[in-house]
């Protein structure tokens, strides 16, 4: 009998540390499925961030490099420039990519580095216990915005796809959401496109994945998915930005 569903070869058979209902496990599996499909596991080098996905290298079955908080795209630039024939991607959260690493994100994109980035936007700092992220929604309560994010005080949620869409070095930008089975399929398609672009030397590609963080949002897994679908997408409209 044909086996219809298996663990991707790029994903190790280990337990992850992610919380119940977290989107990281799904997103990382999608990355692995795409790498398997493209047959590029043997030439892949991933750059793991600081944040919840810090130990992604324990789950991924290919070469990985650590990076300091916010510096993943600088490390990836170094890797790709000396080995342009390898497939290099970063996997980064919102704090990493859009707060402490904003300069690296904008300038790597602007240089048009031939890299792919998987950007997990869950509107909160998960690893450190639920503080405000650059992408936290207005009025969203976090450990550091106990009364809710106030635009006058904390500014507005940072829209990465919209921001990068004006840069000529960027080849591909799409925002997707892990809010349903359909959303997950679309996310995989976007990751596939971002990865293929690099293989075809098209320049910088980024997929922004809206992803649930039930524990830090103070919601059940189901409520979190609902909130993602109904609230988060209002601030972060889905679709292709470039």
């Amino acid at each position: 009998m044909k086996k219809a569903f298996t663990r991707p070869k790029s994903l190790r058979d280990v337990e992850t540390h992610y919380c119940p209902g977290c989107g990281h496990g799904v997103a990382q599996r999608l990355v692995c499925e795409v790498i398997d499909q493209l047959g590029i596991r043997g030439k892949t080098i991933a750059v793991c961030p600081v944040g919840c996905a810090v130990v992604a290298y324990d789950y991924w079955n290919f070469d990985c490099c650590e990076a300091a908080h916010g510096r993943a795209l600088a490390v990836a630039t170094g890797i790709k420039r000396v080995q342009p024939d390898k497939f290099v991607f970063t996997y980064q959260g919102d704090g990493d990519l859009a707060a402490i690493g904003t300069a690296e994100t904008v300038h790597t994109a602007n240089r048009g580095e031939n890299l792919s980035t998987v950007f997990i936007n869950n509107a909160i700092y998960g690893m450190t216990g639920g503080q405000m992220a650059p992408t936290t929604l207005l009025n969203q309560k976090t450990a550091t915005t106990p009364l809710g994010r106030d635009a006058q005080r904390e500014g507005y949620p940072l829209k990465v796809c919209e921001l990068l869409s004006r840069l000529p070095g960027v080849a591909f930008l799409e925002r997707v959401a892990l809010d349903s089975a359909g959303g997950i399929i679309k996310a995989k398609r976007a990751i596939h496109q971002a990865f293929v672009n690099q293989l075809e030397k098209k320049g910088f590609s980024l997929v922004e994945i809206l992803s649930p963080c039930p524990v830090c949002w103070g919601k059940s897994a189901l409520q979190a998915q609902q909130w993602l679908k109904e609230e988060m997408v209002k601030t972060f409209p889905l679709g292709r930005y470039k």
Binding site: I45, V47, C65, A67, A68, R71, A74, V75, A76, T77, G78, I79, K80, R81, V82, Q83, A103, E104, V106, H107
Partner: peptide, 22 residues
């Protein structure tokens, strides 16, 4: 060989980290 003018010293040393890791 590769020469990159980085956007900051932070980026430069981390680019070096990437190349050194290879």
């Amino acid at each position: 060989r590769v020469f990159v003018q980085a956007e900051s010293e932070l980026a430069a040393i981390n680019m070096v980290m990437g190349a050194a890791a290879c």
